[in-house]
Simulated assay, not measured.
Amino acid sequence: MNSNLKNLKTELKLELQSILSYWMENTLDEKNGGFVGQIDYNNNTNDEAEKGSVLNARLLWTFSAAYKISKKQDHLDTAKRAFEYISEHFYDSEFGGVFWSLHSDGTPKDTKNQIYALAFVIYGLSEYYSVTEDNKSLHLAIALYNRIQKHSYDNEKGGYLEAFTRDWKPIDDLRLSEKDANEKKTMNTHLHIVEGYANLYKVWKDESLRKVIIELLETIEKYFINTETGHLRLFFDENWIEKKDVISYGHDIEAAWLLLQCAEIAGDGNLIERYKKYAVQIADVTKEGIDKDGGLWYEFDPETNELIAEKHWWPQSELMIGYFTAWQLTGKQEYLDIIFKNWDFTQKHIIDKKNGEWFWGIFSDYSTMKKDKAGFWKCPYHNGRACIELIHRIES
């Protein structure tokens, strides 16, 4: 193992421990159970903030996956806390879905079924099952998988529809967040459905699930990957008519490695070979979004030729795994060099040396973005997973 990789692995192990410690020390909600909904950039806790299903599902995944490396009981205990809170509060036992958000006291707030959230709960539950063999978590994951297949899968045109009411009726506002287009089929949701399904397949070798994963990867290849440019298409209506949008560098490089991993889990040789090519192609075109300091810019709008000149925490995390994958596939040193430079940038500008965890991001003048340290969209999944993935890959 070369010394740079050895050093990187050591630093990532320390950083993973630091990230997990932050969440255990700062986010446990001792009053209402589970985890607090928000901590601001100055580390002030908002005890009254709503609690998001995505954050809680990602906490479940992160602490379960980290336990495989650390073997620390408090990491497993934190995963168990997340599992129990999700199954008791977020899971809708009446209609078999997942509440999008809860009030701080754990009662339902936004009761819509956002398929993205169900997919993340499956991802977390299956990871938890892999370390505990708790049958309740597996049965819940399978039940949610069946719900998505029953209600969200488009039998006529293929792909998955974004969102539904609590009782699985059509809904007007399909968006994940205010910045998203209100469209029925999105890259982001398809990416995370296949991620959740592939993780479920690792612990539940159901042949029909495997076929669904293969179909999903073929759908993503057909509609969401622009094979000419190497970028992802983000938004479509129900008839697969594309709605023009930005280039999201973080989503591009995340998809590059994650879709290949899903193809490998499904074990389809043809898909694996195609997604290996995409992994390298996407990594190569994502270079256009890397600044000279090694940081990855957030987004680019080709219509206005405008760069969204921010560097958020999560694209840096995904860059590391995406370029490590490209290096593994090609052996080209340039991909490793991109990682080392980006990690240097992240340590200097993104990691909060004083209070722990990572800042949301920085602007082009290196000033810190004054957004959540923990919250609806700020979680330990991207940065925690980058540490976990690279530790495993460097070791193997």
Rank of each mutant, 00 (worst) to 15 (best):
125 L>P: 02
72 K>Q: 15
20 L>N: 03
271 L>K: 00
37 G>D: 09
90 F>M: 07
8 L>K: 01
43 N>L: 06
330 T>R: 00
258 L>P: 02
244 K>G: 15
313 W>Y: 04
138 L>T: 14
228 E>N: 14
232 L>W: 06
263 A>N: 01
395 E>V: 02
292 K>I: 13
315 P>K: 07
226 N>Q: 11
390 L>E: 03
102 L>Y: 06
337 D>L: 04
170 P>V: 11
147 R>P: 03
378 K>R: 09
105 D>K: 11
181 A>P: 06
55 L>C: 01
9 K>P: 03
83 F>T: 04
281 Q>E: 10
10 T>Y: 11
258 L>D: 03
297 W>A: 07
367 S>P: 11
208 S>G: 11
270 N>K: 11
262 C>E: 08
196 G>L: 01
65 A>L: 00
133 E>I: 11
83 F>C: 12
212 V>N: 12
374 A>W: 02
69 I>D: 01
221 E>M: 06
241 I>H: 14
288 E>M: 12
358 W>Q: 01
345 F>W: 07
121 V>A: 00
362 I>L: 09
195 E>Q: 09
65 A>K: 00
391 I>E: 00
58 R>K: 09
225 I>R: 02
243 K>I: 15
75 H>K: 05
395 E>H: 06
300 F>K: 06
335 Y>C: 02
209 L>W: 09
48 E>M: 13
158 G>V: 11
391 I>L: 04
161 L>C: 13
350 I>Q: 00
184 K>R: 15
60 L>A: 07
28 L>M: 13
96 G>S: 08
117 A>K: 02
268 D>M: 02
277 K>V: 13
374 A>R: 04
350 I>D: 03
144 L>P: 03
373 K>S: 07
52 G>F: 04
163 A>F: 05
138 L>M: 15
322 G>L: 03
325 T>I: 02
210 R>A: 09
32 N>I: 03
40 D>S: 08
367 S>T: 15
138 L>Y: 14
346 T>K: 00
119 A>N: 09
34 G>A: 10
163 A>M: 13
125 L>R: 01
16 L>A: 01
345 F>G: 03
237 D>M: 13
46 N>A: 10
128 Y>F: 15
378 K>D: 07
106 G>I: 05
108 P>R: 02
238 E>R: 13
4 N>K: 15
49 A>G: 08
69 I>T: 00
319 L>K: 06
130 S>G: 12
97 G>I: 01
144 L>W: 07
77 D>V: 10
293 D>G: 13
22 Y>R: 03
20 L>G: 06
145 Y>E: 10
175 R>I: 10
385 R>V: 01
86 I>A: 04
288 E>Q: 15
